[in-house]
């Protein structure tokens, strides 16, 4: 697609979509969103970019190959689940740590394995879909 307007707009759109995907990921625990949706939006962002500038350019922008991203995500999700096991809980039990307090109300923010797991989901969806789409773009 050799459209100057599309190419120029795509760069802007990709950045916006990508930031939006992270936003959807992070707000997912309380409002509609989450790793699946965030990952899908992120994938759409890079697909738009690859349609505008070609898959080679898009791969360069991504820096890491999408298959690696997907496997990394799977590994992160697994670690988040194993973490509970190391802490003595059944596998994949959510682990919560309060920073600056001892409950949700008093703490400034929390560290938890649930968000880590959701990040893993995000990366798997993003990487999986991008690897598929790029393969189709390059081979067809």
């Amino acid at each position: 697609m050799n459209s100057v307007i599309f190419t120029a707009a795509a760069r802007l759109l990709v950045a916006l979509l990508f930031v939006f995907s992270l936003f959807m990921l992070l707000r997912g625990h309380h409002l509609p969103g989450g790793g699946f949706i965030g990952g899908l939006i992120g994938a759409v962002a890079f697909i738009v970019y690859s349609l505008a500038c070609g898959p080679a350019e898009a791969r360069k922008a991504l820096r890491i190959t999408p298959e690696v991203i997907a496997m990394l995500g799977l590994g992160i999700a697994l670690l988040a689940g194993l973490f509970a096991f190391f802490m003595g809980d059944p596998l994949f039990t959510g682990q919560w740590y309060w920073v600056g307090g001892d409950s949700y109300e008093t703490a400034a923010f929390s560290l938890n394995s649930v968000l880590v797991f959701d990040i893993g989901v995000y990366l798997v969806v993003l990487g999986g879909i991008l690897s598929l789409t790029y393969a189709f773009e390059e081979e067809t």
Binding site: H29, H30, A70, G73, G81, W96, V114, G127, I129
Partner: peptide
């Protein structure tokens, strides 16, 4: 500690299922 019940089910109550599902997505992509 989550207000979006759907997401809480996915990443907390039924995490093992979700893990299996993303594994399927990863394998299908590969």
């Amino acid at each position: 500690f989550g207000r979006n019940i759907v997401n809480v089910i996915l990443v907390d109550f039924r995490t093992l299922d979700t893990f299996g599902e993303i594994a399927v997505v990863g394998v299908a992509a590969l």
